[in-house]
Amino acid sequence: MEHRKYNRKAYHAADPADVAVSQAIFNDMWELFVQIGKFWGKTEVVEDLRTDLLVFMNNRIAMDPSYLYDYKNASEVIKELIYEMGEEKGYESLFTDKSILDDPPTTLKARARQKVSNEFIVLYLSLGGFKDYGAENSLGYIGGANIKGKTPYRTIDK
């Protein structure tokens, strides 16, 4: 019975084919990721990270298909904010509005912040964004192995 579909390893009941993120939503999410870098970073987010973001989003969706709707929601929330305040202020509002940190989130803007933008922040930092703030390694960053003379974090000898 191994071949039966009901034996498939699953985190949820959705068919993976039904829950793929569209190119348009991904482009919007990539823009959000770039804006995180612009707002907090001192160096620009490089194009190479597109794949990391896509893998991350697909992994989140694979764990819980409701992320598909969260990414769609984030895209719509951002469009509205930009329409209302312009690009810079729109993103700033999403990133810094202290009134949308209620747990669990109760508005669509709060959901966009907590389920999407704040998660992207973790990804952004784990891909090296922390380096602008002084460290050589950080939680989630694949710093590399412990090789003598090439320690992947700040040591007392460096």
Binding site: N137, G140, Y141, G143, N146, P152
Partner: peptide, 8 residues
């Protein structure tokens, strides 16, 4: 695999 100091 060797530790890659990801910290998780």
């Amino acid at each position: 695999a060797p530790c890659k100091t990801t910290g998780t």
